[in-house]
Amino acid sequence: MSALAHVPTASGQPVSPPPAARRGRHRLLPYLLLLPGAAWLFLFFAVPLVQLAAASLYDPTGSLSTGYALTWAFGNYPTALQAYWPQFGRSFLYAGIALVLALLMGYPLAYAIAQKAGRWKNLLLVCVIAPMFTSFLVRTLAWKTILSDNGWLVGLLRDVHLLGPDGRLLATPIAVVLGLTYNFLPFLVLPLYASLERLDYRLLEAASDLYASPLKTFRRVTLPLSMPGLIAGTLLFFIPATGDYINAELLGTPKEYMIGNVIDSAFLVRLDYPQGAALSFLLMSAILVVVFVYLRRAGTEEVL
């Protein structure tokens, strides 16, 4: 740029450097640009996390009306875990099963859009995002209709004896897992698509020219090259799915409740803030541990 700035004009007269060279004056500018947004995130994201940690150590005998004292009650954690470990385990179990299902569905979908769709690529991509245009809750309620005892799906499954004559789908773990899979599938597909789209088709041709079977081509070429998208997609799916409680509430029964249902009721119904905060903090730590272990094993840290 500076080389260009000093090029004399056609008439041969040197020109004064254009204003671009005055950049140096704006030392403070980046901080001014960052300040409002960073302050907002600090005040309403970081500080609340500290407040949550503090609330999880409040004296459990306090209440909202009498006020809480910070007594560093670490005992809140084992107490909460003892009472609610089934819901805790269920959150990870359901989200894990949903993730496997979503991978089985999402990988072929992302691959087909990226490599096979040709000029229909953009249209199909819009089709993946489009369902998210309708409210999350309204879509989940639609599953209530689809899975209902009088619905065609249950009727069909009963006719082919996959379900007993009184068998149900609604209010079972199947419904909850199906809802989780459905609701977060686009989050898995989009990053995966972005990775697969950049995949050079000639590499696949080269592999098959060198007598690799389709399965081997997939395992040795396609899968490793799609790894960044796969990792990002898996995390974008797993994190919200573990913390979700809408599906368990609308499609399940208290027997399918996940940790989110417990936390929701601790904060909004039972008004037991220390316990709710302890569970919330445990959930975040558990997710962070899972994510960290996963990233270490997957061997990529560039997603972060």
Binding site: A38, L41, F42, F44, F45, A46, V47, P48, L49, Q51, L52, A54, A55, L64, L235, I239, P240, T242, G243, Y245, G260, I263, D264, F267, Y273, G276, A277, S280, F281, L283, M284, I287, V291, L304
Partner: peptide, 23 residues
């Protein structure tokens, strides 16, 4: 600071903000 809110479960953000507002 920018990345974390996208990776934190909404549940944790919601409850922590509630804890802040209430306190």
């Amino acid at each position: 600071l920018i990345f974390l809110p996208m990776a934190t479960p909404e549940l944790v953000m919601g409850t922590s903000l509630l804890a802040l507002f209430v306190s």
